[in-house]
Design a protein around this nucleic acid. Structure first.
Lengths: 188, 188
DNA sequence: TCATTCATGTAAGCCGTTACATGATTGT
DNA sequence: ACAATCATGTAACGGCTTACATGAATGA
């Protein structure tokens, strides 16, 4: 066992996103670099604010999931280069394989999407399993929506009805996407 | 001006959700009642946890947006009945009419959806305006996605590509829904 | 006998946002 | 002369989650 390192049971999704993004880059990067990389890719799915990024990097170093090298610079603040440790890769892989709680569907969906984005760093079957679970959860949600939709009487300017439709559309889009993703990942 | 009441500049979306839900019910309700009502309706869009609900109700009373009556009960904890005040209705109407920041699209989208749900308590044109803005923001996001999609080379097990597709699907679904909603609200 | 309904909260803790701080170099 | 790029953070604040607490009545 390693000494002097606090291994937390689980990290926040933001921490995994940062860890995963650094792993995806495949080379050491500074917070500054990382931020730019994130903005152009995962950022659309999951992104910490600028200051959060630095805080998170610090936390990950403390947990032993990242290595930090300090590169001294003249006339500039020192640059910190971060690299994923073996423990970091292991933690990421475990998280990628761990099932989510699908009762908070919005949250679960965001997380599974993030996991999919980082999927090549983990076990394909685990991702597939979670995608299937996500599909089922959305399907269940869809029938909930349908039930509500049925026992609703039509009215003019039906704001609540419109909001409901949005939920249904979203759920349907999610199911479609998952079906397709499963096909790509199982067949390919 | 009212005395002894702290009027905050703006509330959190959660607070507006609670305020709006209570307004939507149209009758005084306890936290307990409210929670059940929320679970079956807005809950799918926006829902505070159980304890948050009580905290929020307290805050809204302090701000003068809700009235609280205590109903004494034997053998049970006293029941607190909440009712929206005139100031509360006014605050809700102002929020429903206020434009959002669409740079955080996920957030903006959730909020506009919530506003749509509560729309009948506000000015229809303001809702329409915000829906139009949301559509534009999603359209912009779509072209961002398209640009990224174009300059991406095909590969096997393209996890990142799958995640990207999800974003695109979602964005397209959102645009479609908004178009339809605008049609319903403008035409009706 | 055990879970559910009714009915409310407090306490602890933490993640994340916003504002503030520094400062040289390079391009317009 | 001004903005952007590079490069890092701290401080304050606050909302939200999770765990804990109480307790009678009712139905399976």
């Amino acid at each position: 066992m390693a000494v002097g390192i606090k291994a937390k049971a689980a990290l926040t999704p933001t921490e995994y996103a940062v860890l995963g993004m650094l792993g995806d880059l495949g080379r050491p990067a500074s917070g500054y670099d990382l931020r730019k990389a994130i903005d152009q890719s995962v950022g659309l799915i999951w992104g910490p604010s600028k200051t959060q990024l630095y805080t998170v990097l610090g936390r990950l170093v403390e947990s032993g999931l990242l290595n930090r090298q300090v590169v001294e610079q003249r006339e500039r603040p020192d640059k910190h280069l971060y690299e994923v440790t073996r423990a970091g890769r292991s933690a990421l892989r475990q998280w990628l394989a761990r099932d989510e709680d699908y009762r908070d569907l919005q949250r679960a969906s965001d997380i599974v999407l993030l996991k999919t984005f980082l999927g090549r760093q983990g076990d394909r079957r685990a991702i597939v399993r979670q995608l299937a679970a996500l599909r089922d959860a959305y399907a269940a949600r869809l029938s909930t929506y349908d039930a509500i939709w049925q026992r609703r009487r039509p009215r003019r300017n039906d704001y609540a009805g419109l909001a409901l439709q949005f939920g249904m559309l979203r759920a349907r889009a999610a199911v479609e996407w998952v079906e397709n993703a499963l096909h790509e990942l199982s067949g390919g």
